[in-house]
Amino acid sequence: MLIRRGGGIPSSEITPHSLYLRRREFLTGAAAFAFAGPLGSGPAAAAGMQAAKSPFSTTEKPTPLSDVKSYNNFYEFGPGKADPAANADALTTAPWRVSVEGLAARPGEFDLEDFMKPYALEERIYRMRCVEGWSMVVPWVGFPLAEVLKKAEPLGAAKFVAFESLSRPEEMPGQRGLFQLLDWPYVEGLRLDEAMHPLTILAVGLYGEALPNQNGAPLRLVVPWKYGFKSIKSIVRIRLVEKQPPTSWNKQAAGEYGFYSNVNPNVDHPRWSQATERRIGEGGLFAKRRPTLMFNGYAEEVASLYSGMNLQKLF
């Protein structure tokens, strides 16, 4: 049972307790070894993207681009918020291949350019809520995941969609060394109806430019009514499966991070309240907190997906 806690988000903002302890080990042990130097050709140059405006966009003011690019969780590049921006330039994003496999009549493996080619790009300005209690508003560029799945023709036994991120320790310093924060590769999953929902997109850009490496280049999932860690970055594999797939944070701490991880102000994390949030770009740690919206403000669109479910138990 999750217990409501009073007070604000701790200033560590907020690495889960188990990772906090492991991070201390990591920092203690860092002097004993050195990371290998970065390999690869570096990030692809940002390019302008033509994208149609979407009626699904919020009218809220977007978070400044500088904050979106500099304040991230991407543990493959380190545990700190600034680590992805500092380290992700080592990631080679071209060439990039994506496989669609599993319970599908038309599986395949594609170069990213061919994978994207059939789909018209849209700008989707979405709220993004982190499980740690902070939020952003991001103008993503992408296309509906449903279009990809329809093209793959899911078989009748397919009930879930599993995602897998890149594992490349030579370019991702958080994946190498003696103290690992998570099991790699990072994996995530959605129920098939969640994946097919019109709000669920695959993003290839933000703010009209190619997706920066630290934000999940070159291809990431965006599910705006769920906590941000569900929106897996740097995707290389999409699988249609029959049974609920494992997910990285649920494997790490099942009592803290459920499979669904819908934004819910009434279901607290065991160690902090989810009732309010701090919007990045609005005054730092001491900014006035705002109420957390059910399903991150997308309840009208998605609440029916969970009709009859106990959202306290299936968090």
Results as ranks from 00 to 15, higher is better:
D89N: 08
D89L: 11
A90T: 05
A90M: 06
L91I: 07
L91F: 03
T93H: 09
T93M: 06
A94N: 14
A94R: 15
P95I: 00
W96S: 03
W96P: 04
R97G: 06
R97V: 07
V98I: 05
S99R: 15
S99L: 04
E101L: 07
G102T: 01
L103F: 02
A104R: 05
A105T: 04
A105K: 14
R106Y: 05
R106T: 13
R106P: 07
P107T: 02
G108V: 00
G108M: 02
E109P: 06
F110I: 01
F110A: 10
D111L: 11
L112M: 08
E113L: 10
E113F: 08
E113K: 13
E113H: 10
E113T: 14
D114R: 13
D114I: 13
F115E: 13
F115A: 04
F115W: 01
F115N: 07
M116A: 13
K117G: 06
K117N: 05
Y119P: 09
Y119L: 15
L121G: 08
L121V: 03
E122F: 02
E123F: 00
R124N: 14
R124K: 13
Y126D: 03
R129P: 05
R129Q: 15
C130K: 10
C130G: 11
V131T: 13
V131N: 11
V131Y: 11
E132F: 01
W134G: 11
S135E: 10
S135K: 13
M136K: 15
V137Y: 10
V137R: 14
P139N: 07
P139R: 03
P139S: 04
W140R: 13
W140H: 08
W140M: 02
W140D: 08
V141A: 15
V141P: 09
G142S: 00
G142I: 01
G142P: 03
F143H: 04
P144R: 11
L145V: 01
A146Y: 04
A146W: 03
A146P: 07
E147P: 00
E147I: 05
E147C: 02
E147A: 09
K150C: 02
K150Q: 12
K151G: 02
K151E: 10
A152F: 01
A152L: 01
A152P: 06
P154I: 00
G156S: 14
G156Q: 14
A158T: 06
K159C: 12
K159H: 13
K159R: 14
F160D: 12
A162G: 09
A162Y: 09
F163Q: 02
F163I: 01
F163T: 01
F163Y: 09
F163K: 00
E164V: 04
E164T: 14
S165K: 04
S165I: 06
L166C: 08
E171S: 13
M172K: 11
P173I: 03
P173K: 02
G174A: 03
G174D: 05
R176N: 05
G177E: 03
G177Y: 07
G177H: 10
L178K: 14
F179M: 07
F179C: 11
L182C: 10
W184N: 15
W184E: 03
W184H: 12
W184G: 09
Y186C: 04
V187F: 03
V187C: 07
V187M: 07
V187I: 08
E188V: 05
E188I: 07
E188T: 09
E188W: 00
E188Y: 04
E188F: 03
E188D: 08
G189C: 12
G189N: 07
L190E: 01
L190P: 12
L190Q: 07
L190R: 00
